[in-house]
Design a protein around this nucleic acid. Structure first.
Lengths: 146, 146
DNA sequence: GATTGCACGCAACCATGTTGCATGGACCTT
DNA sequence: AAGGTCCATGCAACATGGTTGCGTGCAATC
Protein backbone atom coordinates (compact mmCIF):
# COMPACT_ATOMS: atom_id res chain seq x y z
CA UNK A 1 0.00 0.00 0.00
CA UNK A 2 1.42 3.30 -1.05
CA UNK A 3 0.81 6.58 0.67
CA UNK A 4 -2.25 8.41 -0.58
CA UNK A 5 -1.72 10.58 -3.59
CA UNK A 6 -2.40 14.17 -2.76
CA UNK A 7 -4.13 16.61 -5.01
CA UNK A 8 -0.88 18.50 -5.24
CA UNK A 9 1.09 15.47 -6.37
CA UNK A 10 -1.53 14.79 -8.98
CA UNK A 11 -1.40 18.36 -10.24
CA UNK A 12 2.36 18.14 -10.43
CA UNK A 13 2.28 14.99 -12.46
CA UNK A 14 -0.13 16.45 -14.93
CA UNK A 15 1.93 19.57 -15.30
CA UNK A 16 5.14 17.61 -15.74
CA UNK A 17 3.46 15.58 -18.41
CA UNK A 18 2.68 18.79 -20.24
CA UNK A 19 -1.04 18.53 -19.66
CA UNK A 20 -3.44 21.20 -18.61
CA UNK A 21 -5.13 20.67 -15.30
CA UNK A 22 -8.82 20.01 -15.39
CA UNK A 23 -11.07 18.88 -12.64
CA UNK A 24 -11.88 15.67 -14.48
CA UNK A 25 -8.28 14.76 -15.12
CA UNK A 26 -7.42 15.30 -11.51
CA UNK A 27 -10.25 13.13 -10.35
CA UNK A 28 -9.33 10.30 -12.68
CA UNK A 29 -5.67 10.45 -11.76
CA UNK A 30 -6.43 10.53 -8.06
CA UNK A 31 -8.74 7.57 -8.38
CA UNK A 32 -6.03 5.49 -10.00
CA UNK A 33 -3.29 6.85 -7.76
CA UNK A 34 -5.13 6.03 -4.58
CA UNK A 35 -5.94 2.47 -5.45
CA UNK A 36 -3.25 0.01 -4.44
CA UNK A 37 -4.00 -2.40 -7.26
CA UNK A 38 -4.30 -1.85 -10.99
CA UNK A 39 -7.85 -0.77 -11.70
CA UNK A 40 -10.02 -1.52 -14.67
CA UNK A 41 -11.67 1.27 -16.60
CA UNK A 42 -15.15 0.43 -15.28
CA UNK A 43 -13.79 0.45 -11.74
CA UNK A 44 -12.20 3.81 -12.29
CA UNK A 45 -15.39 5.10 -13.83
CA UNK A 46 -17.35 4.06 -10.79
CA UNK A 47 -14.86 5.57 -8.36
CA UNK A 48 -14.81 8.87 -10.14
CA UNK A 49 -18.57 8.89 -10.47
CA UNK A 50 -19.02 8.27 -6.77
CA UNK A 51 -18.13 11.88 -6.11
CA UNK A 52 -19.76 13.54 -9.04
CA UNK A 53 -21.14 12.32 -12.31
CA UNK A 54 -18.85 12.13 -15.27
CA UNK A 55 -19.35 10.86 -18.75
CA UNK A 56 -18.08 7.40 -19.52
CA UNK A 57 -16.43 8.51 -22.73
CA UNK A 58 -14.60 11.29 -20.93
CA UNK A 59 -13.04 8.82 -18.54
CA UNK A 60 -11.89 6.58 -21.36
CA UNK A 61 -10.44 9.56 -23.15
CA UNK A 62 -8.63 10.80 -20.07
CA UNK A 63 -7.21 7.35 -19.46
CA UNK A 64 -5.93 7.19 -23.02
CA UNK A 65 -4.48 10.64 -22.65
CA UNK A 66 -2.69 9.80 -19.42
CA UNK A 67 -1.26 6.66 -20.94
CA UNK A 68 -0.07 8.59 -23.99
CA UNK A 69 1.62 11.09 -21.74
CA UNK A 70 3.21 8.37 -19.67
CA UNK A 71 1.44 9.24 -16.46
CA UNK A 72 -0.26 5.86 -16.33
CA UNK A 73 0.63 2.41 -17.50
CA UNK A 74 -1.90 0.41 -19.39
CA UNK A 75 -1.49 -3.21 -18.45
CA UNK A 76 -1.87 -5.63 -21.28
CA UNK A 77 -3.25 -8.33 -19.09
CA UNK A 78 -5.20 -9.60 -22.02
CA UNK A 79 -7.15 -7.98 -24.71
CA UNK A 80 -10.20 -6.29 -23.28
CA UNK A 81 -10.92 -4.74 -19.96
CA UNK A 82 -7.65 -3.01 -19.63
CA UNK A 83 -6.17 -2.11 -16.26
CA UNK A 84 -4.31 1.01 -15.34
CA UNK A 85 -1.75 1.88 -12.73
CA UNK A 86 0.47 4.82 -11.91
CA UNK A 87 3.65 4.89 -13.85
CA UNK A 88 6.63 4.44 -11.59
CA UNK A 89 4.62 3.06 -8.71
CA UNK A 90 6.20 -0.33 -9.23
CA UNK A 91 9.15 -1.84 -10.95
CA UNK A 92 8.93 -1.69 -14.64
CA UNK A 93 8.20 -5.29 -15.36
CA UNK A 94 6.70 -7.03 -12.43
CA UNK A 95 4.39 -9.99 -12.08
CA UNK A 96 0.70 -9.51 -11.40
CA UNK A 97 -1.41 -11.66 -9.24
CA UNK A 98 -5.01 -12.08 -10.21
CA UNK A 99 -7.37 -13.21 -7.50
CA UNK A 100 -10.00 -15.39 -9.07
CA UNK A 101 -12.35 -14.79 -6.20
CA UNK A 102 -12.45 -11.04 -5.80
CA UNK A 103 -11.19 -10.47 -9.33
CA UNK A 104 -8.59 -7.98 -8.24
CA UNK A 105 -5.04 -7.66 -9.39
CA UNK A 106 -2.06 -7.22 -7.12
CA UNK A 107 1.31 -5.99 -8.26
CA UNK A 108 4.12 -8.14 -6.97
CA UNK A 109 7.33 -6.32 -6.60
CA UNK A 110 9.28 -9.54 -6.59
CA UNK A 111 11.70 -9.14 -9.44
CA UNK A 112 10.94 -12.48 -11.04
CA UNK A 113 12.84 -11.98 -14.23
CA UNK A 114 14.09 -15.44 -14.50
CA UNK A 115 13.78 -15.62 -18.18
CA UNK A 116 15.99 -17.40 -20.51
CA UNK A 117 15.68 -14.69 -23.06
CA UNK A 118 18.45 -16.17 -25.09
CA UNK A 119 16.48 -19.30 -25.78
CA UNK A 120 13.66 -17.13 -27.02
CA UNK A 121 15.88 -14.98 -29.14
CA UNK A 122 17.04 -18.18 -30.72
CA UNK A 123 13.51 -18.75 -31.90
CA UNK A 124 13.92 -15.40 -33.60
CA UNK A 125 11.21 -13.81 -31.58
CA UNK A 126 11.61 -10.12 -31.09
CA UNK A 127 10.50 -9.62 -27.53
CA UNK A 128 9.24 -6.25 -26.44
CA UNK A 129 7.57 -7.09 -23.24
CA UNK A 130 7.13 -9.87 -20.74
CA UNK A 131 3.99 -10.34 -18.73
CA UNK A 132 3.84 -12.70 -15.84
CA UNK A 133 0.45 -13.36 -14.43
CA UNK A 134 -0.31 -15.53 -11.46
CA UNK A 135 -3.76 -16.71 -10.71
CA UNK A 136 -5.08 -17.84 -7.40
CA UNK A 137 -6.62 -16.67 -4.17
CA UNK A 138 -5.39 -13.56 -2.45
CA UNK A 139 -4.73 -13.43 1.28
CA UNK A 140 -7.87 -11.44 1.98
CA UNK A 141 -10.09 -13.93 0.20
CA UNK A 142 -8.39 -16.89 1.84
CA UNK A 143 -9.61 -15.60 5.16
CA UNK A 144 -13.20 -15.48 4.07
CA UNK A 145 -14.63 -18.93 4.33
CA UNK A 146 -16.45 -19.93 1.23
CA UNK B 1 3.06 -27.17 -36.53
CA UNK B 2 1.38 -30.34 -35.49
CA UNK B 3 0.10 -32.97 -37.83
CA UNK B 4 -3.41 -32.30 -39.05
CA UNK B 5 -6.15 -33.59 -36.87
CA UNK B 6 -8.19 -36.17 -38.70
CA UNK B 7 -11.91 -36.51 -38.45
CA UNK B 8 -11.35 -39.84 -36.79
CA UNK B 9 -9.12 -38.41 -34.09
CA UNK B 10 -11.70 -35.73 -33.43
CA UNK B 11 -14.47 -38.27 -33.15
CA UNK B 12 -12.38 -40.30 -30.75
CA UNK B 13 -11.73 -37.36 -28.52
CA UNK B 14 -15.37 -36.47 -28.33
CA UNK B 15 -16.30 -40.03 -27.51
CA UNK B 16 -13.63 -40.30 -24.87
CA UNK B 17 -14.91 -37.13 -23.32
CA UNK B 18 -18.33 -38.74 -23.05
CA UNK B 19 -19.88 -36.47 -25.63
CA UNK B 20 -22.17 -37.36 -28.45
CA UNK B 21 -20.86 -36.71 -31.91
CA UNK B 22 -22.56 -34.01 -33.87
CA UNK B 23 -21.54 -32.43 -37.07
CA UNK B 24 -21.16 -29.04 -35.41
CA UNK B 25 -18.98 -30.32 -32.59
CA UNK B 26 -16.72 -32.07 -35.03
CA UNK B 27 -16.34 -29.00 -37.14
CA UNK B 28 -15.49 -26.81 -34.15
CA UNK B 29 -13.02 -29.30 -32.76
CA UNK B 30 -11.33 -29.76 -36.11
CA UNK B 31 -11.04 -26.02 -36.56
CA UNK B 32 -9.25 -25.66 -33.25
CA UNK B 33 -7.24 -28.84 -33.69
CA UNK B 34 -5.92 -27.83 -37.07
CA UNK B 35 -4.75 -24.39 -36.11
CA UNK B 36 -1.23 -24.31 -34.80
CA UNK B 37 -1.85 -21.36 -32.50
CA UNK B 38 -4.50 -20.77 -29.88
CA UNK B 39 -7.52 -19.35 -31.65
CA UNK B 40 -10.00 -16.82 -30.42
CA UNK B 41 -13.69 -17.57 -30.48
CA UNK B 42 -14.36 -15.16 -33.36
CA UNK B 43 -11.56 -16.77 -35.34
CA UNK B 44 -13.00 -20.19 -34.73
CA UNK B 45 -16.43 -18.95 -35.67
CA UNK B 46 -15.12 -17.67 -38.95
CA UNK B 47 -13.22 -20.87 -39.72
CA UNK B 48 -16.22 -23.04 -39.03
CA UNK B 49 -18.50 -20.75 -40.99
CA UNK B 50 -16.22 -20.84 -43.99
CA UNK B 51 -17.48 -24.31 -44.79
CA UNK B 52 -21.10 -23.96 -43.81
CA UNK B 53 -23.03 -21.43 -41.79
CA UNK B 54 -23.36 -21.99 -38.10
CA UNK B 55 -24.90 -19.92 -35.38
CA UNK B 56 -22.60 -17.83 -33.27
CA UNK B 57 -24.23 -18.95 -30.05
CA UNK B 58 -23.82 -22.57 -31.01
CA UNK B 59 -20.09 -22.13 -31.42
CA UNK B 60 -19.76 -20.45 -28.05
CA UNK B 61 -21.76 -23.21 -26.44
CA UNK B 62 -19.72 -25.93 -28.07
CA UNK B 63 -16.51 -24.24 -26.96
CA UNK B 64 -17.77 -24.06 -23.39
CA UNK B 65 -18.82 -27.67 -23.59
CA UNK B 66 -15.45 -28.82 -24.88
CA UNK B 67 -13.66 -26.89 -22.17
CA UNK B 68 -15.93 -28.39 -19.51
CA UNK B 69 -15.17 -31.83 -20.81
CA UNK B 70 -11.46 -31.12 -20.93
CA UNK B 71 -11.10 -31.49 -24.63
CA UNK B 72 -9.95 -27.91 -25.02
CA UNK B 73 -8.07 -25.50 -22.84
CA UNK B 74 -9.40 -22.03 -22.42
CA UNK B 75 -6.46 -19.71 -22.12
CA UNK B 76 -6.82 -16.98 -19.59
CA UNK B 77 -4.73 -14.57 -21.54
CA UNK B 78 -6.76 -11.77 -20.11
CA UNK B 79 -10.35 -11.23 -19.46
CA UNK B 80 -12.23 -11.08 -22.71
CA UNK B 81 -11.60 -12.56 -26.08
CA UNK B 82 -10.69 -15.95 -24.82
CA UNK B 83 -8.46 -18.26 -26.78
CA UNK B 84 -8.73 -21.99 -27.11
CA UNK B 85 -6.31 -24.77 -27.85
CA UNK B 86 -6.36 -28.55 -27.83
CA UNK B 87 -5.75 -30.05 -24.46
CA UNK B 88 -2.52 -31.97 -24.39
CA UNK B 89 -1.17 -30.38 -27.52
CA UNK B 90 1.41 -28.57 -25.44
CA UNK B 91 2.94 -28.76 -22.03
CA UNK B 92 0.57 -27.92 -19.35
CA UNK B 93 1.93 -24.55 -18.43
CA UNK B 94 3.86 -22.99 -21.21
CA UNK B 95 4.52 -19.41 -22.18
CA UNK B 96 2.60 -17.73 -24.93
CA UNK B 97 3.95 -15.29 -27.38
CA UNK B 98 1.67 -12.60 -28.64
CA UNK B 99 2.62 -10.94 -31.88
CA UNK B 100 1.54 -7.34 -31.70
CA UNK B 101 1.59 -7.05 -35.44
CA UNK B 102 -0.47 -9.97 -36.65
CA UNK B 103 -2.18 -10.37 -33.30
CA UNK B 104 -1.58 -14.09 -33.18
CA UNK B 105 -0.51 -16.18 -30.27
CA UNK B 106 2.18 -18.81 -30.41
CA UNK B 107 2.64 -21.51 -27.83
CA UNK B 108 6.23 -21.82 -26.74
CA UNK B 109 7.14 -25.22 -25.57
CA UNK B 110 10.16 -23.90 -23.75
CA UNK B 111 9.62 -25.01 -20.19
CA UNK B 112 10.41 -21.63 -18.67
CA UNK B 113 9.26 -22.37 -15.17
CA UNK B 114 11.89 -20.48 -13.38
CA UNK B 115 9.65 -19.31 -10.66
CA UNK B 116 10.54 -18.73 -7.14
CA UNK B 117 7.27 -20.07 -5.91
CA UNK B 118 8.48 -20.15 -2.39
CA UNK B 119 8.85 -16.40 -2.28
CA UNK B 120 5.28 -16.12 -3.45
CA UNK B 121 3.96 -18.62 -1.01
CA UNK B 122 5.59 -16.52 1.64
CA UNK B 123 3.30 -13.70 0.62
CA UNK B 124 0.51 -16.16 1.44
CA UNK B 125 -0.73 -16.20 -2.07
CA UNK B 126 -2.41 -19.38 -3.06
CA UNK B 127 -1.27 -19.89 -6.59
CA UNK B 128 -3.33 -21.98 -8.92
CA UNK B 129 -1.90 -21.04 -12.21
CA UNK B 130 0.96 -19.20 -13.81
CA UNK B 131 0.66 -17.43 -17.11
CA UNK B 132 3.65 -16.16 -18.93
CA UNK B 133 2.98 -13.95 -21.85
CA UNK B 134 5.57 -12.46 -24.13
CA UNK B 135 4.83 -9.68 -26.48
CA UNK B 136 6.70 -8.76 -29.57
CA UNK B 137 7.04 -9.46 -33.26
CA UNK B 138 6.86 -12.97 -34.60
CA UNK B 139 9.34 -14.30 -37.16
CA UNK B 140 6.81 -14.12 -39.97
CA UNK B 141 6.03 -10.48 -39.32
CA UNK B 142 9.69 -9.59 -38.96
CA UNK B 143 10.19 -10.61 -42.56
CA UNK B 144 7.49 -8.31 -43.82
CA UNK B 145 8.89 -4.82 -44.12
CA UNK B 146 6.66 -2.32 -42.49
C1' DG C 1 -48.44 -42.49 -30.75
C1' DA C 2 -47.11 -39.51 -26.70
C1' DT C 3 -43.17 -37.90 -23.89
C1' DT C 4 -38.76 -36.56 -22.83
C1' DG C 5 -34.09 -34.87 -23.76
C1' DC C 6 -31.06 -32.36 -26.30
C1' DA C 7 -28.72 -29.72 -30.12
C1' DC C 8 -29.43 -25.87 -32.44
C1' DG C 9 -31.17 -21.27 -33.99
C1' DC C 10 -33.04 -16.72 -33.25
C1' DA C 11 -33.69 -12.53 -30.94
C1' DA C 12 -32.54 -9.92 -27.42
C1' DC C 13 -29.56 -8.38 -24.08
C1' DC C 14 -25.16 -7.02 -21.55
C1' DA C 15 -20.44 -5.09 -21.01
C1' DT C 16 -16.49 -2.81 -22.70
C1' DG C 17 -14.78 0.31 -25.63
C1' DT C 18 -14.85 3.70 -29.73
C1' DT C 19 -16.38 7.42 -33.04
C1' DG C 20 -18.69 11.50 -34.73
C1' DC C 21 -20.80 15.48 -33.77
C1' DA C 22 -22.49 19.43 -30.96
C1' DT C 23 -21.64 22.71 -27.30
C1' DG C 24 -19.65 25.81 -24.32
C1' DG C 25 -15.90 27.97 -22.08
C1' DA C 26 -11.10 29.96 -22.22
C1' DC C 27 -7.92 32.40 -24.63
C1' DC C 28 -6.15 35.11 -28.55
C1' DT C 29 -6.50 38.62 -32.31
C1' DT C 30 -7.99 42.55 -34.22
C1' DA D 1 -15.66 44.62 -27.14
C1' DA D 2 -16.53 41.46 -31.27
C1' DG D 3 -15.16 37.64 -33.55
C1' DG D 4 -12.41 33.42 -34.12
C1' DT D 5 -10.01 29.28 -32.62
C1' DC D 6 -8.85 25.54 -29.59
C1' DC D 7 -10.12 22.06 -26.76
C1' DA D 8 -12.49 19.47 -22.87
C1' DT D 9 -16.65 17.55 -22.25
C1' DG D 10 -21.15 15.38 -23.19
C1' DC D 11 -24.41 12.76 -25.92
C1' DA D 12 -25.90 9.44 -29.11
C1' DA D 13 -24.78 5.88 -31.78
C1' DC D 14 -22.05 2.09 -33.10
C1' DA D 15 -18.78 -2.05 -32.77
C1' DT D 16 -17.35 -6.25 -30.81
C1' DG D 17 -17.30 -10.23 -27.73
C1' DG D 18 -20.08 -12.82 -25.13
C1' DT D 19 -24.51 -14.55 -22.68
C1' DT D 20 -29.49 -15.73 -21.82
C1' DG D 21 -34.13 -17.17 -22.70
C1' DC D 22 -37.10 -19.29 -25.46
C1' DG D 23 -38.81 -22.01 -29.21
C1' DT D 24 -38.40 -25.85 -32.43
C1' DG D 25 -37.37 -30.02 -34.43
C1' DC D 26 -35.19 -34.49 -34.22
C1' DA D 27 -34.16 -38.83 -31.96
C1' DA D 28 -34.53 -42.14 -28.49
C1' DT D 29 -37.66 -43.99 -25.08
C1' DC D 30 -41.94 -45.26 -22.78
Amino acid sequence: MKAKMSEKTATDRLTKAGLEITDHRLRVLLAVGNTPHPSSAPEILEMVRAKKDINRVTVYRILDLLVDHEVLNRLGLGEKSQRFCLRGAHEDEHPHFHCTRCDRYLCLNAPARPFDRQALTDLSLEIEHVDIRLEGICPACQKIKK
